[in-house]
C-alpha cells in the first residue's frame, strides 16, 4: 500500500511543476508590466523601478523563475498591497473556513446523490428515476450564485429559518478556541453546544448550495455505474442464491459500482473549488475565495496568485487522495502498483 502511495506521489510531481510554472507565467511573462502590478496603481516611476529590482524583474526569465521557486520553498507568496499582510498568513488563517464549507458541501451532495443514483438504477423509469434525471440535468444548468441567493431569499427573508448570510458565526457568538480551525469540530471539542448550533446554522445554506451544485455528476455517474453492475452475472448469481435485495444491492453491486463514482469525484472537486469562490461571495464567507475576490477588485495581484497556487496544489493533492482511495476500494489496482 505504501509503495502505491509513493508511486502516486511521483505521478503528481509533474502536475505540481506544471502548476508552479503556470502561476509564475501568469505574473511575469504576460503583457503589461508586473512591477507596475505589484507596486499598485498609484505608484510613481521610481517606486515601480524599486519594486522591479526588489522582485528581481530586471533579471532574465529563468533566473526570475529560480528565485520564484526559492521563495515558494520558503513559503513566501509575497505581500498583499491592501492589508500589508503576508499572503501566506492570510491564506492559512482563512483556509479552514473554506475547507469546512467545501467538505460539508461535498458531504451533503454525496449524501443525496448516491442514494438517489442507487434508487434510480434499482427502479429504472420509476418516479425516482425521473427525479434523478431532472435533477442531474437541472443541476448542471444552475448558476451556483443564483441558487445561493434564492435559498437566502426563501430561508432567510421569507421563512426566517436561516440566519443572515453574513459569515461563519453570528456576531453574538465568539469563535470556539481554535484546534482544527473548523468551527463545528472546535465547538464540539470545547463542548459548546450553543456555538456548535450557531456555526451549523450559518453553514447550512452555503453547504446546501454547494451540494446542489455538485450533486449532478455524482448522481448521474452512480446511476449509470449501478445500472451496468446490476446487469452483470455476479449480481444475477447473488440474487439466484437467495440473498436479500439489500445485500445484493449494497454489498455486492454498490461496492463495485463505486469505482467510477470515485473517479468522478476528481471532476467534482474541480467544480466545487471554483463554485466555492462564488458561494463565499454570496454568503460573505471569510474564506480564501472571498479573500481572492476582494484582492481582484483592488487589483492586488499577490493574493490572487497565492490563491490560484493554493487551490491548484490542493486540487492536485485531492486527486492524489482519490487515487489512493481508489486503491483502497479496488484491490486489483493495488496489485498492479
Amino acid at each position: 500500500m505504501l509503495t502505491v502511495i509513493l508511486k502516486r506521489l511521483l505521478i503528481a510531481i509533474p502536475s505540481l511543476i506544471g502548476v508552479v510554472i503556470v502561476t509564475f507565467l501568469l505574473t511575469r511573462a504576460l503583457p503589461g508590466d508586473p512591477a507596475a502590478y505589484f507596486a499598485g496603481p498609484a505608484a510613481t516611476k521610481e517606486a515601480i523601478q524599486e519594486v522591479r529590482v526588489k522582485l528581481g524583474l530586471d533579471k532574465s526569465l529563468p533566473r526570475q523563475f529560480m528565485r520564484y521557486v526559492a521563495d515558494l520553498a520558503k513559503g513566501d507568496l509575497g505581500q498583499s498591497l491592501t492589508t500589508g499582510q503576508p499572503v501566506v498568513t492570510e491564506i492559512r488563517n482563512r483556509l479552514p473556513a473554506s475547507a469546512e464549507l467545501t467538505l460539508l458541501g461535498l458531504i451533503v451532495s454525496v449524501a443525496i446523490a448516491i442514494p438517489l443514483g442507487i434508487f434510480a438504477a434499482v427502479k429504472p423509469n420509476s418516479w425516482i428515476d425521473h427525479t434523478c434525471r431532472v435533477m442531474t440535468t437541472a443541476g448542471v444548468s444552475l448558476p451556483v450564485f443564483f441558487t445561493g441567493l434564492i435559498l437566502v431569499y426563501v430561508f432567510y427573508y421569507l421563512l426566517g429559518w436561516a440566519p443572515a448570510p453574513l459569515g461563519r458565526l453570528d456576531i453574538f457568538f465568539s469563535p470556539p478556541p481554535p484546534v482544527t480551525g473548523f468551527y463545528l469540530i472546535d465547538s464540539a471539542v470545547a463542548g459548546n453546544v450553543e456555538t456548535f448550533r450557531a456555526a451549523l446554522n450559518q453553514l447550512f445554506l452555503p453547504a446546501v448550495t454547494l451540494g446542489i451544485f455538485s450533486l449532478a455528476p455524482i448522481a448521474r455517474m452512480t446511476r449509470a455505474s449501478m445500472l451496468a453492475v446490476l446487469a452483470s452475472d455476479f449480481v444475477r448469481t447473488a440474487r439466484a442464491s437467495g440473498l436479500t435485495p439489500f445485500t445484493v444491492v449494497v454489498t455486492y453491486a454498490f461496492r463495485n459500482a463505486m469505482l467510477p463514482v470515485v473517479t468522478t469525484l476528481g471532476m467534482v472537486f474541480s467544480f466545487l473549488l471554483g463554485a466555492n469562490v462564488l458561494v463565499e461571495k454570496v454568503f460573505a464567507w471569510p474564506g480564501i475565495g472571498s479573500y481572492a475576490v476582494e484582492a481582484l477588485i483592488a487589483s492586488d495581484f499577490a493574493p490572487v496568485q497565492g490563491f490560484v497556487l493554493t487551490m491548484a496544489i490542493m486540487y492536485v493533492l485531492l486527486n492524489l487522495a482519490i487515487d489512493v482511495l481508489y486503491g483502497v476500494i479496488d484491490p486489483r489496482v493495488r496489485l498492479e502498483g
Binding site: 502536475s15 510554472i21 501568469l26 505574473t27 473549488l273 490572487v304 490560484v308 491548484a312 486540487y315
Partner: peptide
C-alpha cells in the same frame, strides 16, 4: 494536463486577473 491540474474556474480567475 497542466491546465487540467487547476480547478477550472480558479484558473479562469487567475488568467483574467493577469491579462
Amino acid at each position: 494536463d497542466t491546465i487540467m491540474a487547476f480547478p477550472l474556474f480558479v484558473l479562469a480567475m487567475g488568467i483574467v486577473a493577469a491579462l
